[in-house]
Design a protein around this nucleic acid. Structure first.
Lengths: 341, 341
DNA sequence: CTGAAAGCGCTTACAG
DNA sequence: CTGAAAGCGCTTACAG
């Protein structure tokens, strides 16, 4: 059975206070070296480890960061969450923090109907896809721990956030397509709640507005960032392929769907229709043709998010100040876009 | 600030004991309905949530399962850990348990030198790649919580384990290659500590022994289950390609490496050399040619492991009895093996 | 159905 | 440098 601090103290002939001091780096130097040595030996001998729950209760912290994830089949098989976990994990490596998966269940058809038990026992929370999982901003007060959102919430919010420069990414795509000679461009967007989608679209649209070129709104359809939906919707879109020379898919996942449909229809990419994505998934270099896209720094965002959380946990007494960080993106040129003369 | 049970009790005009009873499903029926209603309203009003650390301390459990992972770059980007996490996650979905990543750091050149703090605060532990992360079997006593190993430890051990039928998998490969007319077969094995590797090899060897065919030991090389190593070692092996008609790679990862090297050398698969793997990674259907392999049920193993853990947590008072489970494997025929006449 | 009280195993002023 | 004591916020026999 596990030994407690009381038993250890008895064996060492000291009080539990002394044991406790010996246990924690910050207080070890308050203990006489000889005593320290005796205690350390006993700890070794009896394989003593402090009770975490007691420690957490006393300290009012758990040293655990929560990562909020939707409980979806294949969630760990895609690109996004593995990159996210890697980023968080790396940021935590040299710290005393560990991280916990907080799996969110779909309640009926809603993600944002949940009891608030999930906040339980974490010192901070990494939240993705705001505002998908929460219907209102008051949630942060309820949660009672610092939170970081991994996208731009586009509203005042009681939480930190980091995001990549989606707007500039949209601009880059526009600039690239423009310089390759494309003027008529179709678009497949993500869900309307997604700021990633909205901002990419905005940056793209702005660029063409400045050039005095207006985009045909009929050629902008939504497929919710989902491959299979894009695959289906590409059907109608491709029938009108005389009306455009390129399709900007607001994420790679949807580009994969379009590519599949094109292959099925025998429409060649990029010769007949150019495709450009956004995200730069691992798979995107392996598609046929390899996909030109914009790198979405998910790993870097996650790492930045975790660091912000750690910082805010450090300085918790200080005045609260919510951090905002924007990471750069860059275009990855492969071969799914044709240069028009 | 978060409200405590005492303040809630005062507002409700009852004792903290009654609040506590109202809070827990098992004891709710001990509280008078009217009182219950009043308490529930107050909980709602003040957004009360119980302090997890206090609960854990009192209950001597955390409702958290730990999953042990080596802190390696790209760990979440491969096939194995994502499948593992998905399995664990799915098994936990309808339970009160959550799971925590327990990232193991490489200490010097060793994985098994770690302070034992990682056991902290979990009710049970899922362990992969035994015995890579632990040098001796006494660890389970130290850990003090039920553990499940996701492979066959091949020794008596104070822990549960689940594994797939690697030996039969090896046999299946042998049988398949034999029936396709292959008699001279090279092999690339995993690390010697890996029971997965050893048992696959064993099943394979046994089959050919029974047939009275002996395998050339010179053609059995190790590449530690690592793609890049297999890629390098394939170099020498392929120079002797007159000596064999097929290579059995004991995991798909190494098969990818061999395939790459073959492409580089301009050796065609399966026409000149047949390749067969083990694992059935997602990528294995996309290689050129698609890889014939054996399905390794990582998802199912993880799910089974988590369930075993939950069961043993339920019946913890009962006599301890360590469970062993073996899951079936099956051959996935694609096009990397040629039928010889 | 309800409450007073003990106790889970720690940490940390406070006093020496 | 060390100890006695309070207290973190719960749960659970025990008594009524």
């Amino acid at each position: 059975m596990k030994i407690t601090i009381h038993e250890l103290a008895k064996k060492a002939g000291v009080s539990i206070a002394t044991i406790s001091r010996a246990l924690n780096q910050e207080t070890r130097d308050k203990v006489r070296p000889g005593t320290l040595e005796r205690i350390d030996q006993l700890i070794q001998k009896y394989q003593y480890t402090p009770n975490v729950a007691a420690k957490n209760l006393r300290r009012a912290s758990s040293n655990i960061i929560g990562v909020l994830l939707p409980h979806l089949p294949g969630i760990f098989m895609g690109d996004y969450y593995p990159k996210l976990l890697t980023g968080v994990s790396d940021a935590l490596l040299e710290t005393a923090y560990q991280f916990k998966m907080v799996m969110l269940k779909l309640q009926g058809s809603k993600w944002d109907k949940h009891d608030f038990r999930f906040g339980e026992g974490v010192d901070g929370l990494v939240i993705t896809h705001w505002p998908l999982f929460f219907s209102d901003k008051s949630v942060f007060k309820k949660l009672g721990v610092p939170c970081v959102i991994i996208n731009d919430p586009e509203e005042e919010i009681q939480a930190h956030y980091v995001s990549c420069d989606n707007e500039q990414g949209g601009e880059m795509v526009a600039d690239y397509l423009f310089k390759q000679g494309h003027r008529k461009i179709a678009m497949i967007t993500g869900p309307s709640w997604s700021s990633d989608s909205e901002l990419r679209l905005k940056g793209f649209g702005n660029y063409f507005s400045k050039k005095g070129i207006s985009l045909n709104p009929d050629l902008i359809i939504s497929a919710d960032f989902v491959q299979s939906l894009a695959y289906e919707k590409a059907h109608e879109l491709l029938k009108r392929r005389k009306d455009f020379s390129a399709i900007f898919c607001l994420n790679d996942e949807m580009a994969f769907g379009v590519l599949r449909k094109m292959k099925e229809f025998g429409i060649s990419c990029p010769e007949e229709v150019s495709i450009i994505g956004f995200d730069d998934q691992v798979k995107s270099s392996y598609t046929d043709p390899p996909l030109t896209t914009v790198y979405h720094p998910v790993y870097e965002l996650a790492q930045a998010a975790a660091k912000i959380l750690l910082d805010s946990l450090d300085e918790k007494k200080d005045k609260v100040c919510y951090k905002r960080e924007t990471l750069p993106v860059h275009l990855v040129e492969r071969s799914s876009v044709q240069k028009l003369k």
